[in-house]
Amino acid sequence: MDIRYEVNPIDFKSYSTSEVREAFLIESLFQTDTLQWTYSHYDRLVIGGAVPVEKTLRLDWSDVLKTAYFLERREIAVINIGGEGTVRVDGEAYTLVKRDCLYIGKGKEVVQFESEDAAYPARFYLVSATAHQSYPTKKLPISEAVPTKLGTDAESNCRTIYKYIHQEGIQSCQLMVGMTLLEPNNMWNTMPAHLHDRRMEAYLYFDMEPSSRVMHLMGQPNETRHIIVKNEQAIISPPWSIHSGVGTSHYTFIWAMAGENYTFTDMDPVPMEALT
């Protein structure tokens, strides 16, 4: 498990490109027949990837978390971005096709991941936060998720947002998770930018061509930096940072938040003239 510590925004101002990438970019999440994990000290969020091909993968790393099992004091969101796969939760099977979401609450002991077809394996994106209360395991297929259309062609940000885990959707202790799909010829996300000082956020960029890139913008509004992101790479975004991006082509991203507040309205907009 890769451990990422918190970065002071004042220290961040002196970071080189390589230091910014080392602190906030997760470059390799999806590896065949293994679970890849990154533990962020921002709100104790754990970000992972599972690609079961020849074998079943089991949710573990309890030795690093110092608990008897992974979800003893945690909850987790699972979103499939690959071929059809199955998640077994204490023996109960949930089949996920591409873009389906599964929430698993605190206290579930045995979680396993399988692919239906080894030639087109599932690619499970995993996001876990600490939890003090248990909520029921629940699946939300992409076919049943309610789409919200936003943006304009003039602003190059026509997009569809799906909210999976939130106050009016799948219930959780503190996780909020959703997905944004940009339309062809639209490249901007989350601009004008905003901050939410009581919640951190993580982005997974995917459905990108191998040659495509996203320029992810981060930092305090008056001290921004960028990270160049490839397909299926993730970004850790601190509470003090904006989180926006523009691609060389359209793309899809999963956003996940954890922290003190559990509402989408807890954000501070950043005027365009404040960005430097």
Rank of each mutant, 00 (worst) to 15 (best):
A77P: 02
T34W: 00
G151W: 01
K108G: 06
V111Q: 11
I254H: 14
L102A: 09
L29Y: 03
A256G: 08
E273D: 06
P221G: 05
E109H: 11
P210T: 14
H250S: 13
L140G: 03
V246A: 12
M187D: 11
E201R: 10
F124R: 03
L175D: 09
I3Y: 13
N185V: 08
R225E: 01
L35Q: 05
C101E: 01
A77E: 06
T180H: 00
T86C: 07
H41R: 12
Y15R: 04
F264Q: 12
I235P: 00
G219E: 04
D11C: 10
R88S: 14
Y94E: 04
E114T: 10
L217D: 00
T17K: 02
Y94M: 07
V229K: 00
I236K: 12
E232W: 05
V64Q: 12
S241F: 08
T38M: 15
I142N: 15
K106L: 14
S241P: 01
V89Y: 15
I236Y: 15
R159F: 10
G107I: 15
P271V: 07
H250Q: 07
A193L: 01
G91C: 10
T34P: 00
E109S: 11
Y251K: 05
Q167M: 14
D90Y: 12
I47Q: 05
K149W: 12
C101P: 07
Y205Q: 04
E27L: 08
T265C: 14
W240Y: 12
K149T: 00
E260H: 09
G259H: 13
P184M: 05
E92L: 11
M1E: 09
L175R: 05
L217K: 08
L96I: 01
L71E: 04
Y125C: 02
V46S: 11
G169K: 09
A274R: 03
T148K: 13
G259W: 15
Q112D: 05
I170N: 02
R199F: 09
Y5W: 14
